[in-house]
């Protein structure tokens, strides 16, 4: 097996919080210094482990939001009511605090420019996080793969990375929002859940053989994946990542 890639045991390492950046009312980005970080690919995640004073441990997975080119490792975390881990990560952590993480892990839900396109990214709420790492990497790497990000949020103030996404809309990247619960009075965009008609309108068509990445809560992912297959997209071209309340 000599010479084969990444044969390394996963070990827990200590991350230090460099900064905590609010994204929306319930979502924060943790900028982390991880001294032994080995680099990552867009779409990968980390496991976080918190240990209580009595020894009780809770583990959760969080997607990496930052591009591989970023100096700090960034995780964007949504506060989940009644969650075990996210209330601590979003409410208690301050600059200089430390916790354990291991990673990066995963390889299936990863996009690199060499995988080509066109690229269709479909995000539900904080499911945008691993897709944002792909978008950021696309920009940092100077890739020009035609890319559509279809992003479903509850309302305009719930749109994570809203300002940054507006600034990135050049060079073949199109960002389309749909707001499912409330929208500004002058909203002219989509205001319903992602459905087959929306996906057909936006494209790319199945004939273009797009690389598709879908991330969000389990019901969102299943509905979008089914709609894409019904439209004629090859299941093998659709990569999905689900998260549930256990993400809390």
């Amino acid at each position: 097996m000599a010479g084969t890639a990444v044969h390394r045991r996963l070990t827990w390492q200590v991350a230090e919080v460099v900064d905590v950046v609010p994204e929306t009312e319930s979502v924060k980005t943790l900028r982390l210094d991880v001294p032994e970080w080995a680099g990552h690919l867009p779409g990968q995640h980390v496991d976080i482990r918190l240990t209580a004073e009595d020894g009780y441990q809770a583990e959760r997975s969080y997607s990496i939001a930052s591009a591989p080119e970023s100096e700090a490792v960034e995780l964007t975390v949504e506060h989940v009511e009644d969650g075990e881990v996210s209330p601590y990560l979003t409410g208690e952590l301050r600059q200089g605090d430390r916790f354990e993480l291991r990673g990066p892990v995963g390889g299936y839900f990863v996009w690199e420019p060499s995988r080509g396109g066109p690229l269709l990214l479909v995000a539900g709420g904080s499911g945008v996080v691993p897709l944002m790492a792909m978008v950021r990497h696309r920009v940092a790497a100077g890739a020009e793969v035609p890319t559509t990000l279809l992003f479903s949020s509850r309302g305009w103030d719930d749109v994570i990375y809203r300002d940054e996404l507006e600034g990135l809309e050049t060079n073949g990247l199109r960002v389309v929002h749909t707001l499912t619960r409330s929208h500004p009075d002058d909203w002219i965009g989509y205001s319903r859940r992602v459905d087959p008609e929306m996906l057909r309108e936006l494209g790319p068509a199945p004939e273009e053989r797009p690389q598709v990445y879908v991330c969000g809560p389990t019901p969102f992912v299943e509905a979008v994946a089914k709609a894409l297959v019904d439209l004629g997209h090859e299941p093998v071209g659709i990569r999905t990542e689900r998260f549930g309340p256990t993400g809390g």
Binding site: V6, H7, R8, R9, L10, H45, D47, S61, R102, G103, V105, G106, G107, Y108, F109, T218, T240, E241, R242, F243, G244, P245, T246
Partner: peptide, 21 residues
């Protein structure tokens, strides 16, 4: 809760010492 293989990436890499997803 139904998730997918990505959610098991960490524990599987711990077991197999390679990326398994």
């Amino acid at each position: 809760v139904k998730l997918d293989g990505n959610a098991a990436a960490g524990i599987l890499q711990q077991i197999f010492a390679v990326e398994v997803t």
